[in-house]
Structure formats: C-alpha cells, structure tokens
C-alpha cells in the first residue's frame, strides 16, 4: 500500500462578481477536480463564493520574507511617484 500524501492546493474564492479572488486556505486532494470539490465543501458551505481557483501549492513562486527589505527596496526612494510629493499652490483647483 502506497503511503503517499495527497498534494496540497491553495484555495482562492471570488465572493461575488466584481471582486477579485482571495486566498481562503488550503486543502489536500488527489487531483485537480477533487481539489475543486473539496475546496467547495470546505470553504463555501454558506454561499461564500461564486468562483473558485485551486492551485498546487508547490507551483507557487513566492518572495522570501527574510529578503523583503532588499527585494522591495527599489520602490522605497521614489517618493515622487506619490501625488503628495507635489506642492499644489493655493488657489489651484481640480488637480
């Protein structure tokens, strides 16, 4: 008898149309169809969703939190990207 653990899937739920899918949790399943069925039974028992995505956890490429300072550093010094960087003189409207 094989003692193989079913792969882990991450579950994303769109709660209603117009919203993006949001991570809800994870489940184990032997294949993709079972992953969808299990995700439905586990995460949408009270009509929490109109659409489900499931993706094998080992297919997700994630940034490393230990390196997050360096990884996101390029965005840190470009304060001119924010509208608050600019002084708007008094009397100028609709800007």
């Amino acid at each position: 008898m094989s003692k193989q653990e079913w792969p882990l899937y991450e579950v994303f739920v769109r709660t209603r149309s117009g919203l993006s899918h949001r991570h809800a949790g994870s489940i184990h399943a032997a294949d993709d169809q079972m992953a969808l069925d299990n995700a439905r039974d586990t995460y949408t028992r009270r009509s929490e969703g109109v659409s489900l995505w499931v993706v094998r956890s080992d297919r997700i490429v994630a940034s490393d939190p230990a390196e997050s300072a360096a990884f996101f550093e390029p965005a840190e010094d470009k304060i001119y990207r924010h509208p608050t960087f600019y002084d708007v003189p008094d009397g100028v409207e609709n800007l």
């Binding site: 991450e10 956890s57 997700i60 230990a66």
Partner: peptide
Amino acid sequence: MYTQGLDQKESAGK
C-alpha cells in the same frame, strides 16, 4: 499563503 514546503529548508540555512 500556506506554502510551507519551501520555507523550512531556507530558514534552516539562515
């Protein structure tokens, strides 16, 4: 997210 597989080795190295 719940991807635990990869982080164990990494944090062990650090």
